[in-house]
Simulated assay, not measured.
Amino acid sequence: MLSMQLASELSALSVASVYRASDDKRLVLRKLYGRTLVVTSSLIDLLNSAEP
């Protein structure tokens, strides 16, 4: 799992866009000890679904 900040940097999306992708069910987030984390496999899927 990745922090929101790292997922944002790796995907070149803003943190708000990462949350929006989660709201659109295109990205999976998990809460762990009060922190919101991005499930790595869902980020990879999101990036692979991008148009070239």
Results as ranks from 00 to 15, higher is better:
S49P: 03
Q5L: 12
A12Q: 03
A21E: 04
A50K: 04
K25D: 15
D45N: 06
A16Q: 03
Q5P: 03
M4S: 06
L10A: 13
L10V: 03
Q5C: 11
S17K: 07
V15A: 13
L27W: 05
T40W: 07
E9M: 14
Y33D: 08
V39M: 15
R35L: 13
S49M: 02
S17W: 06
V28Y: 06
N48M: 11
L43T: 01
L47V: 11
L46V: 13
R20K: 01
V38Y: 02
A16R: 03
R20V: 07
L37I: 05
A7D: 10
R26T: 14
L37G: 07
M4A: 12
S42I: 01
A16C: 02
S17Q: 12
S49D: 06
S14H: 03
Y33Q: 09
R26C: 14
V15F: 08
L47G: 12
A21S: 06
L43D: 02
L32E: 11
L37T: 02
A50S: 06
R35A: 10
S11T: 00
G34K: 15
Q5K: 07
V28T: 09
D23I: 03
G34I: 15
L6N: 13
S11K: 01
A21F: 06
R35V: 02
L37Q: 09
L2Q: 10
L47I: 12
V39T: 09
E51W: 07
T40A: 15
A50N: 03
S49Y: 00
S14D: 13
L6F: 11
R30P: 12
S22A: 13
L46M: 15
R30F: 13
L47D: 04
V18K: 01
A21M: 07
L43V: 04
S14P: 00
S8G: 09
A7E: 10
L29H: 10
K25F: 12
L2S: 09
G34A: 14
E51A: 13
T36G: 04
M4Y: 04
L46R: 02
Q5R: 06
R35H: 10
E9L: 15
V18L: 15
A50V: 06
S8N: 04
E51R: 07
I44S: 14
T36Q: 08
L13G: 03
K25E: 14
V18G: 09
A16N: 04
L29M: 13
R20C: 02
A12T: 00
L2Y: 12
S8K: 05
S11C: 10
S11F: 07
L32Y: 11
L2T: 09
G34P: 02
S22L: 01
